[in-house]
Design a protein around this nucleic acid. Structure first.
Lengths: 230, 230
DNA sequence: AAACCGCTGTCACATATTGCTTCCAGCATG
DNA sequence: CATGCTGGAAGCAATATGTGACAGCGGTTT
């Protein structure tokens, strides 16, 4: 499987570089942000698998940002490890009841850091928290990553699954191909817009035997929409 | 249910007392040993339900003792939680491939400790309480460690048995290879992810003559799932 | 001791599936 | 009717998984 992507949010350049170096040696893909605004961008663009967040930063503090991340549905399931200045502060932060998944204290050893990252990643579920979306007999179960139509299992490839999952959780709303690429593929990859069409086609084909293909609707000149109404 | 008995093996008196205090507040019965020889005695005499083992001790080290415990049939199923000095050592210890059930790193918080103890205890119940898991004619009898399919006995190796046991007790849910390794092999072992594939294959092969191999399903790009539905 | 056995983890290779691009005909829209 | 857009099919390269073989290891039998 592909290596996990980690976003490092840290204002001090020296520490940032050190972290990048250590993490890359630990066989992770790394991207960095030096403040919260650019972190927001990176998350949208690159969809990291985990965030290393310095808790003491100018502007929006790490603590506030962690809260933000954990309260937004979009990023709720994204694991966050806080980097604190000293071990004593761990307890303080714990008291703040942010939803962090773990902490490391400076100075930390790299093996420790890697160990904690691995531990947190192992803990987190592939599809995030359990979730059960259903519209008119079409059911998407995140825990088992399975789609059923009136009880019958529907065979879908990974991308088609993500596509349907996205659409079913944002029904009755129009999305351009660009937006779909953003939300389903992630902004960093560049892929032809027409690729969306192909996967839409595959998804429709898979849903067709069950009669649900009509829910994925084309809006000519713009994009697609998922709707219960035919 | 009677309170569980925990044996703390730790050479430093201060930590020992702290642990005893914390565990007793956590509603466990506690006994202590300051070295391995006396730990052996305590185990024979008091049959604890779980061992908290400091991995750094004079004389026989905690690591060696853990190996000893896990290789003896008598104590093989006794859960062991290692207490390591710092998280950095987790990865080292994993490399040693002991069969530990979990780790805690000093300094740890007591709620965390209690939580981990409970988690491990829950996981290693089958020794105490009989358990009979069955899905659609496929039956796993924990007491005798046997599997039957429609009455016919199924021949499985130990690992395949544990694998099936895990899956059948967590059906309809997707697990990554990493997670399967954690739950079936244990946290400490360090084996290739693809090893899971091989054992999945062996398990399927064993179930095939009885027609149950379809229940172990591949979810491409992610992992495996056990499901009654085809 | 030696030979044997069952079980394991790992590898290498075969196979299957997927992601993406490209092309073209048909259709909606102005 | 001309144009731009979309559905559908085909093909190729990249990945992920299935599968058989093998060597090491303990334990047991001869």
């Amino acid at each position: 499987m592909q290596n996990k992507k980690i976003l490092v949010v840290e204002d001090e350049a020296s520490i940032r570089d050190m972290l990048r170096f250590a993490l890359e040696r630990g066989d992770f893909r790394v991207s960095v942000a030096q403040d919260v605004p650019s972190a927001r961008l990176r998350i949208a663009e690159e969809r990291p698998d985990l965030i290393l967040l310095d808790w003491m930063m100018p502007g929006v503090s790490g603590v506030e940002y962690a809260r933000e991340l954990k309260s937004a549905a979009q990023t709720k399931d994204l694991p966050v490890i806080m980097v604190t200045a000293r071990a004593e502060e761990e307890d303080k932060i714990r008291g703040l009841n942010i939803g962090c998944d773990d902490y490391v204290s400076k100075p930390f050893s790299f093996p420790e850091l890697i160990a904690r990252i691995n531990a947190v990643m192992r803990r987190s579920m592939p599809g995030g928290e359990e979730e059960r979306l259903a519209v008119a007999g079409l059911q998407v179960d995140a825990a088992s990553q399975r789609v059923t139509a009136k009880g019958e299992p529907v065979k879908l490839g990974p991308t088609e699954y993500r596509l349907l999952h996205f659409f079913i959780s944002h029904p009755e709303r129009l999305y351009t191909r660009d937006q779909v690429l953003d939300r389903v593929w992630g902004r960093s990859v560049y892929v032809e817009e027409r690729t969306v069409d192909v996967h839409i086609r595959r998804l429709r084909k898979a849903l067709e035997p069950h009669g649900y293909d009509g829910m994925i609707q084309t809006v000519r000149g713009t994009g697609y929409r998922f709707s219960e109404q035919v």
